[in-house]
Design a protein around this nucleic acid. Structure first.
Lengths: 219, 219
DNA sequence: GATCGCTAGATTGCGTGCAATCACGTCCAG
DNA sequence: CTGGACGTGATTGCACGCAATCTAGCGATC
């Protein structure tokens, strides 16, 4: 059996990311303890951890709430992420192993297939491959602190189920970025890798803000 | 009375930063509970928080230790910090209030005086002013997540009492950077501010690595 | 003599009880 | 009818106890 803290942590975290807990919703310790089948102690520690990662906000004597994001927050987060991912790509270019680059190329193929139009399209699979792809870059950057920071900044926008907002053109551009990044890493060119990665994240930011604006329109 | 968690947190944190706890030293929960005059519960929460900030490492069932830093770690941290502080300076250039820029200019004068040679030199006072100076930049950047990340990355090197390693020339350059940053912010030029800030942090990194190398020599 | 296993002590992980604090509804005064 | 004080219920913050796990020291076996 794993530790109760980790169990509670991933259960609460997944609950937020999957949308089972609305932003702004109150998270009572007793309630979560029942949900995770543990006591309040591990729940409290898990909440502290989630607070550090920005997924929840806890106020003294007032409990925890799921963090709410404004459009300005999202913009800020994506700018931060663009910078951090670019930095990671730069470092990765000088350290990544050929076999990891090969795996990234494989993932590109998988994503191409899963992102293709028609009934076979499987956006959840794309999300999965995308996560592994970027995970390889971060791992190659070999910086524990950078990874921690990126985790904090990357998980948040997952709440909005990003790929479902992508148009066919957006998806195509994203795949092109991935392939170009593989080329840059294979060439060991940090400046190139960094630049592609920045474009990649800023393009994602544009998609998100566009579709967020569209949502506001229709209300 | 403030919360026991905060009390324990700052006490342990200060203890590490002031060098009362050696890197690698084991931090027992019972021991810390006695030290902070609370029970193990708030100590545990404080340790979790410190782990997130990278000051301690906790292993399951094996307790917490003060984090040890290698030269490669320090280099990595300063590169990260250079990037984050530069980003903050860029954002600050577009948002900072004139009165805050004025205060920064004042702080430059104070630092000049405290850093001057002779018996009146007061490096702790320089450290203090320096902290307020950079704090104003970060506050003006208006990004809670960025501030969190910077705190995590800035506190760590404080362990090594940075300014005491500065030569007269280093100090002079640092002051020049500060004045230039004030000019860039007053001009509202984000690119300039960003560039100066990057230089400033990378210069600090060079000082640190140089003096760390010298220490290794003499051993 | 070295390595492995075992036992004892110590330490962490977790559950639970109690006091402090907060939110909310009610009552009273203006 | 509105504003404020008060009381009650619910929730968090903290202390403590017990069980699970780890570390260290000792003895046995190869």
């Amino acid at each position: 059996m794993v530790r109760a803290v980790d169990h509670a942590y991933s259960l609460i975290r997944d609950g937020i990311l999957a949308g089972r807990h609305e932003p702004g919703e109150r998270l009572g310790e007793a309630e979560l303890a029942e949900l995770t089948e543990t006591s309040r102690t591990p729940v409290r520690e898990a909440l502290r951890q989630l607070e550090m990662e920005g997924l929840v906000e806890v106020l003294p004597h007032r409990g925890a709430r799921v963090t709410e994001w404004t459009a300005a927050d999202l913009e800020e987060i994506y700018d931060l992420r663009a910078m951090l991912e670019a930095f990671a790509a730069d470092r990765a270019a000088g350290r990544i192993e050929p076999k990891d680059v090969d795996r990234m190329a494989e993932l590109c193929d998988l994503m191409d297939r899963a992102a293709g139009p028609g009934a076979a399209q499987d956006l959840d699979r794309v999300t999965e491959c995308n996560a592994e792809f970027h995970g390889l870059v971060r791992a190659a950057a070999a910086s524990t602190r950078l990874v921690t920071m990126l985790n904090a900044v990357v998980q948040l926008p997952l709440v909005v189920r990003t790929f479902h907002r992508y148009s066919a053109a957006d998806l195509a551009r994203s795949c092109a970025h991935h392939r170009e990044l593989v080329a840059a890493l294979r060439a060991g060119d940090g400046l190139w890798a960094q630049s592609v990665m920045r474009s990649h994240v800023l393009a994602a930011k544009a998609v998100l803000l566009r579709s967020a604006a569209a949502e506001t329109e229709t209300r």
